[in-house]
Design a binder for these strands. Structure first.
Length: 204
DNA sequence: GTTAAGATCTGCT
DNA sequence: GCAGATCTTAACG
């Protein structure tokens, strides 16, 4: 060990369960500035969450759970604080955090991170020549960079090898609300949230 | 059993 | 800015 852990790891203590049981929009905002940590045999990779989207059980046809429980979306109806990982467009995984009360069918999609630790590891997974701003600036990209796949579906996010850390104690950043990205229904709802001014969001 | 659409990314124009 | 890749899921017959 050269000079101890990177400073950021100090803030990787897992969030407690009650955080996730709040209403989904609150959790989507609350997760901004938190640290998503992923441990594999290759080492640790972590990034600060800078962009999220809320998907609601009621009045939200864009939500995977809007037509009831299926094999794919079952984790959304489980306890809060678990991962919901699904495969889309033949190429990509998307990572969500289950929220609300058990049986609700709501979740928060994590759309972008600011890389904090394991930069070289992320680059090797994403392909070299990948600029830092392009490493984790999208739901499919961050899953690739952190080696998140369906094996982590349903995983308890308080534990290794995938957890969400509390982040910095001081949280003074502005949050922008905007329409969600890539959906064809309920596109008018302002359920996308991101840290104002961050150059690591998926779109400006 | 078949089919159409999808919470995306990349490369090319 | 736009189209193609690529394949799982869920709806439909």
């Amino acid at each position: 060990m050269k000079s101890g852990k990177p400073a950021s790891l100090k803030y990787c203590r897992p969030l407690r369960l009650p955080v996730y049981s709040q209403d989904t929009v609150t959790v989507a905002r609350e997760l901004l500035g938190r640290v998503l940590c992923r441990e594999t045999e290759e080492g640790l990779a972590a990034g600060m969450i800078v962009e999220t989207e809320a998907y609601l059980s009621s009045g939200d046809p864009a939500c995977h759970a809007s037509r009831g429980m299926t094999e794919r979306n079952a984790p959304m109806f489980g306890p809060a604080g678990r991962a919901y990982v699904y495969f889309i467009y033949g190429n990509h995984f998307c990572f969500n955090v289950v929220t609300g009360a058990e049986g609700d069918g709501e979740a928060v999609l994590v759309r972008a991170l600011k890389p904090l630790a394991g930069l070289e590891l992320m680059k090797s997974r994403r392909g070299d020549n990948c600029r830092v701003e392009n490493l984790t600036s999208g739901p499919g990209k961050l899953c690739r960079a952190l080696a998140i796949d369906k094996r982590l579906n349903g995983h308890d996010l308080r534990k290794r090898p995938l957890w969400i850390g509390a982040g910095e104690a001081i949280r003074d950043f502005a949050v922008i609300s905007a329409p969600r990205v890539g959906i064809s229904v309920a596109a008018d709802k302002l359920l996308r949230f991101y840290i104002s001014g961050s150059k690591f969001v998926s779109r400006r």
